[in-house]
């Protein structure tokens, strides 16, 4: 399989983007955006990870078989999250024992 040669310009551009996003992460840490704090931090992290996977790890230029393996990694992560959350989000559904006012033990 021939290796795709990525132009240096792309690497520098990716590097600059990662540094920029890191600075953004630091900057937004100084503002309290309430619930958005988490979502913004995660969005930046996911964007950075995607760029690293596609360009630095050459997945963008790799065969479909490699795509399948990358995809399966994310699929398994989804399995972990969905089945774990199936517990967290349904714990409150059960009726409380008589005399209890909440699931939290007094």
């Amino acid at each position: 399989m021939a290796h795709h040669v990525v132009p240096q310009k792309i690497y520098l551009l990716v590097f600059a983007t990662l540094i920029l996003l890191t600075l953004v992460t630091v900057d937004v840490a100084f503002y309290d955006l309430g619930l958005l704090n988490l979502y913004i931090a995660l969005a930046i992290a996911v964007t950075k990870a995607t760029i690293v996977i596609l360009y630095f790890m050459h997945v963008k230029y790799s065969s479909r078989l490699v795509w399948v393996f990358v995809g399966s990694g994310f699929f398994w992560l989804a399995v972990l999250l969905v089945l774990t959350l199936s517990d967290f989000f349904t714990r409150g559904w059960s009726p409380l024992p008589s005399g209890w006012t909440s699931m939290v033990m007094p």
Partner: peptide
Amino acid sequence: GFLVWGHHMFTSGQSVYAGMIF
């Protein structure tokens, strides 16, 4: 094998609904 791990946790306080799925 990756979809069944909650069967180790039936008596742990895990949601009974998750328990049914597992």
